[in-house]
């Protein structure tokens, strides 16, 4: 005997699930635009695509350029010198460090943000507004001020540098995860949980089988944002980390501060785009998992 509903309901749920549109999904526009509107749409799409793509042009060209001086329009000689230099600079180890750090930050900041958002989204949290302001406040801190001040505190409290980096980056990520979960909970219908409980589910069961599957897409988006905080940070990793963690942005920044390193910087930068893109691909595949699914 299960909680599950009738076959008819199942089918409907599955159909609805298929129809639920997620970012990146090809939708089925209700009305196809024609004529002028169609042209306008195509033009604006091209313009927006160009806007986002253009800054990648130098990176792509430089990645394969062994040498390229003005005024040549294209690189004079093409090769993999950039890749070789990037690897010689410790790019592989840095890639691992970056991945580990970002995943840890995402693994902590996402559930913490989700729990906070859950508490904030329902009335009854004491000092709700104050808490909201506090959780949003890391956004207001200029990175240099945070590092200038917080590092003294962390050092004085004998917090190990690795823990310090994770702590500060989790704090930087919390506004993003909390906000994106707040939005999700605002649209969340408590009825699902209540129905499950009324039907006799334990709270643990309701959490794992009903609640989490329903908020999975939002959790995935939060995790992506938190991952990015760890992935792109330079200042906190360097100053708080005290050289214990040499992540990709550290290598990129120090290479970029020199001359003649354009091609290795370009290789490093492009390779830094790939893991988050893969993650985003996974995120946009995350569906509202089928609540009450058979295990």
């Amino acid at each position: 005997m299960t909680l599950s509903t009738s076959n008819v309901d199942m089918e409907r749920a599955q159909r609805e699930q298929r129809e639920r549109r997620m970012p990146g999904d090809a939708g089925r526009p209700l009305s196809q635009s024609r004529g002028v509107m169609r042209t306008a749409r195509i033009v604006s799409t091209v313009l927006v695509a160009l806007w986002f793509a253009l800054p990648f042009l130098p990176l792509v060209l430089w990645s394969f350029a062994n040498s390229w001086s003005a005024p040549d329009v294209l690189p004079m000689s093409v090769g993999t010198d950039g890749l070789t230099a990037a690897i010689a600079n410790g790019a592989v180890a840095a890639f691992g460090d970056s991945l580990l750090l970002s995943l840890i930050v995402a693994a902590i900041a996402t559930p913490v943000g989700a729990m906070a958002a859950r508490a904030l989204s329902r009335h009854g949290l004491p000092f709700g507004r104050l808490v909201s302001v506090l959780l949003f406040s890391p956004v207001l801190l200029p990175p240099f001020a945070a590092v200038l001040g917080i590092n003294v505190v962390l050092l004085r409290a004998w917090v190990p540098p690795e823990i310090g980096v994770i702590l500060v980056l989790v704090v930087v990520a919390i506004p993003y995860t909390t906000f994106s979960m707040l939005v999700a909970y605002a649209a969340y219908d408590d009825g699902f949980d209540e129905a499950a409980r009324t039907l006799g589910a334990t709270s643990r069961f309701a959490l794992w089988r009903i609640h989490l599957p329903l908020i999975a897409p939002a959790l995935a988006r939060s995790a992506f944002l938190a991952f990015l905080v760890g992935w792109s940070d330079y200042l906190v990793t360097l100053v708080v980390g005290g050289g214990q963690l040499v992540t990709l942005p550290l290598i990129i920044a120090s290479s970029a501060s020199g001359i003649g390193n354009e091609s290795s910087v370009a290789v490093l930068s492009l390779s830094a785009v790939i893991p988050p893109l893969i993650l985003l691909g996974l995120v946009s595949r995350a569906r509202n998992l089928n609540p009450g699914r058979q295990s």
């Binding site: 904030l120 009335h123 004491p126 709700g128 507004r129 808490v131 949003f136 909970y185 649209a187």
Partner: peptide, 30 residues
């Protein structure tokens, strides 16, 4: 639209004392 504003006032409650002393402690320690 039920998009919640994180800065929206929450109904005042009787258990506010749980957070404030904590915040104060954190601040003083820091």
């Amino acid at each position: 639209m039920p998009i919640r504003n994180p800065f929206r006032r929450q109904p005042s409650t009787t258990a506010r004392r749980r957070i404030l002393p904590f915040l104060a402690t954190a601040a003083v320690t820091a």
